Simulated assay, not measured.
Amino acid sequence: MIRISNHYISAEFSTIGAQLTRLSDGTHEYLWSGNPAFWRFQAPILFPIVGRLKNDQYTFNGNTYKMHQHGFARESEFKLIKLDEQQVTFGLTDNAQTTQNYPFKFKLTVTYTLNKETIMVNYQVMNPGSDELLFSIGAHPAFNMSLDSRSDFDRVKLQVSPAAKFERIKLVGPYSDIKHPEQIDLTNPLTIKRSLFDNDAIILNLHSQPVKMGLINSSEHGVEIKLTNSPYVGVWSPFPKNAPFICIEPWWGIADNVDSTGNFSQKMGINRLSSHEQFDAGYSIKLI
């Protein structure tokens, strides 16, 4: 077990996926437990893709590669790089296994830092190779909404700041329909109902604008997620399961569009790094 803590909160991690596995203030457990009856993950890192590829494959430089939903990082063994009382850093680099289905050199570093009631999550992707690096990255933390005996999933509120109407990207099966966005009104807090997820995640096109998203239960406990530059965010709970958790998912990438050609160089939401360039992104979770 890898653990960091301060006077306000404690967090635990696994080297498999560099995944956050516990987030507590000593009274409430804010992170989903990972019960496989509902969903076996807790807060996986999505890399080098977010969402699904058309037919779970892509083409690059004339070759076809297979890759399952959300990529391989969430199942990979990360190296523990640094551990202090209130900060931990994990790393993953390309290897013989990754290059079988992802022919790129990369260095992915994930750092978690505590600051009072907040945990900050920072991603750094570096291109150590001589060729261009193509990738997406995202977060998928699941938050426990049964924080105490008075909690009720259907009384959880989603609060967004700035309060506004947002562009929603619908899904057709597992694929994005970017050309036919809808509008979702979040000028007032949205009461969460399971039926909201009958077509999978609610995906907002944020256009990289800063946003705060809060999940507050009927006992006024919950989390506030601060997104600074993520182009997209997903809100998800598995339907029709009665799962007691909700995910807020900052994404720097998105599932293939319905009309995707499968060409990785043309993939929607792909990030590009030239040789020895660096990409930085992140978000934070504040316990309420």
Rank of each mutant, 00 (worst) to 15 (best):
F41R: 11
W39I: 07
P36C: 05
N55V: 07
P48L: 03
R74C: 02
F104P: 06
N61Y: 03
P103A: 05
P103F: 06
N35V: 04
V121T: 14
K54Q: 10
T113D: 01
K79M: 07
F104I: 00
P103G: 05
Q124I: 12
Y102A: 00
W32I: 08
N122R: 15
D56V: 03
Q69Y: 06
V50F: 08
I119Y: 14
G34R: 09
F106Y: 13
T93V: 13
G34L: 01
N63M: 12
T89S: 14
P128R: 05
K116I: 10
M67K: 01
L92S: 03
E77L: 13
N122D: 09
T111Q: 08
L31D: 07
R52A: 14
E75C: 03
T64R: 07
I49T: 12
M126N: 09
V88T: 08
F106S: 03
I119A: 13
K82S: 13
N95H: 09
Q87K: 15
T99H: 13
R40K: 13
Y102H: 08
K66Q: 14
Q42L: 09
N61C: 13
L114A: 09
L108V: 09
K105T: 13
P103H: 05
I119G: 06
L46T: 02
L80K: 09
N61R: 15
K116Q: 13
F90Y: 07
Y123D: 12
N122A: 13
E75Q: 07
D56N: 15
Q42F: 07
F72D: 01
L108H: 03
M120H: 15
T99W: 06
E85F: 10
F47Q: 00
N95R: 08
S76N: 05
N63T: 09
K116S: 14
Q97V: 15
L108I: 09
P36L: 03
I49F: 05
T89H: 05
A37H: 11
